[in-house]
């Protein structure tokens, strides 16, 4: 029973983190249209927002290993990119603009925390999913 509550809490937290990730990226996207190569940073923020929204839905409604793993991947990938572009002047990468921005501000901090919450909770969900799969395989 306690485990079930923990799984539900993790699921809600992971989905909430992804929802925050989606909202903030969608909200900031118009401003970041100014940072562009072939694609603008705003375009990439919209893609991140759409993928995060989809991942939140999968984590909350589908509740299976591929969905939970997808949620973890979206959050971990997003956090890695955020940190890299905060500290490393990557430059333009083909059609991608140089998104180097050596500063923290409120929205960026909020997204980083939300992504970290999802990374931790989705990792827990993936571990539980894998354990359940193994358990079901044993029962067959």
């Amino acid at each position: 029973m306690q485990m079930r509550t923990a799984v539900w809490a993790a699921r809600v937290l992971a989905a909430a983190g992804l929802a925050v990730d989606a909202y903030v990226h969608a909200d900031l996207a118009p401003q970041y249209d100014a940072v562009k190569a072939t694609f603008s940073q705003g375009d990439l923020f919209r893609i991140e927002a759409a993928i995060s929204a989809l991942a939140a839905l999968l984590v909350l409604a589908w509740r299976r290993l591929p969905g939970d793993a997808f949620g973890w991947l979206v959050a971990a990938g997003g956090f890695a990119l955020l940190v890299v572009y905060r500290y490393v002047d990557v430059g333009k990468l083909g059609p991608l603009p140089n998104m180097y921005e050596p500063v923290w501000f409120t929205e960026k901090r909020v997204v980083a925390v939300a992504q970290l919450v999802t990374v931790v909770t989705a990792a827990f969900l993936v571990a539980v999913d894998v354990r359940d799969r193994r358990h079901q395989r044993h029962l067959r």
Partner: peptide, 8 residues
């Protein structure tokens, strides 16, 4: 996806 894009 539509909700996210409309939010943008």
């Amino acid at each position: 996806l539509l909700l996210a894009l409309s939010g943008c």
